[in-house]
């Protein structure tokens, strides 16, 4: 089944089997998470999450047993505060505190460098490795995204691309993400009282763990 029906027909999203079965659906999930952690949401994005295509997408995701509890938690938060403007502000505060450093000691840096090894410094060895991988692939991060290459969104985009193109490095990339996203998700859990991003990070952790298991099973 190679169908991504949600792209054009959100209302049809997510049958009983959920929406994470096909390659395309899994790619979409990776890219959706990349977008979620890329920047604070605009009112347009939030409107989509509350009652637009993204709401249908979340509903579909919620039917996946591994992701369901976290996704439903997110949906619950969205449903509890349906005022898009207020919700945009609340998510913006959470995003800037958690991921943009505004939270000071409570920042959860969205970089691999800060979650592996002994130091929480940014631009560590993982940045260098991701730079090297991008060079190897003949790619670079777009010029208006002023972030190091080990940013969570960049790594998820690379994972999606490698998976989509059947690149043998896809498994290593997913494993790489699976190595640090749990620590990232734990940090979000302890520092995000609102809980939206904590739940999102938790769902991503579950998704990556399963992807890695699947990749491993195929490899063996």
């Amino acid at each position: 089944m190679n169908e991504i029906s949600i792209a054009a027909a959100p209302a049809d999203v997510g049958g009983a089997a959920g929406i994470t079965e096909t390659l395309e659906e899994r790619l979409l999930v990776l890219r959706w998470f990349a977008g979620l952690f890329r920047e604070a949401p605009t009112e347009e994005t939030v409107a989509s999450l509350v009652h637009g295509p993204a709401a249908a997408f979340l509903e579909g995701l919620s039917k996946d047993p591994a992701l369901g509890p976290d996704i439903n938690y997110m949906r619950g938060l969205l449903a509890a505060k349906p005022d898009v403007k207020a919700l945009t502000a609340q998510l913006g505060v959470a995003f800037s505190h958690l991921f943009l450093g505004v939270g000071g000691f409570n920042t959860v840096a969205p970089y691999e460098s800060c979650h592996v090894g002994e130091s929480d410094r940014t631009f560590g060895q993982p940045t260098m490795e991701m730079d090297a991988l991008l060079r190897h692939l003949g790619l670079s991060v777009v010029s208006d995204f002023h972030e190091p290459a080990d940013h969570i969104s960049v790594e998820l985009e690379i994972a999606a691309l490698l998976t989509a193109t059947g690149d043998p490095q896809a498994r290593a990339m997913l494993t790489r993400l699976d190595r640090w996203i749990p620590a990232f998700a734990d940090a979000c859990f302890s520092r995000d009282p609102f809980g939206f991003y904590a739940a999102a990070a938790s769902a991503l952790r579950a998704f990556l763990a399963r992807e890695c298991r699947a990749a491993s099973a195929i490899a063996h």
Binding site: L134, R135, L139, S140
Partner: peptide
């Protein structure tokens, strides 16, 4: 996408 062609 955050990725584009052309290595730095």
């Amino acid at each position: 996408s955050l990725l584009t062609f052309g290595a730095r």
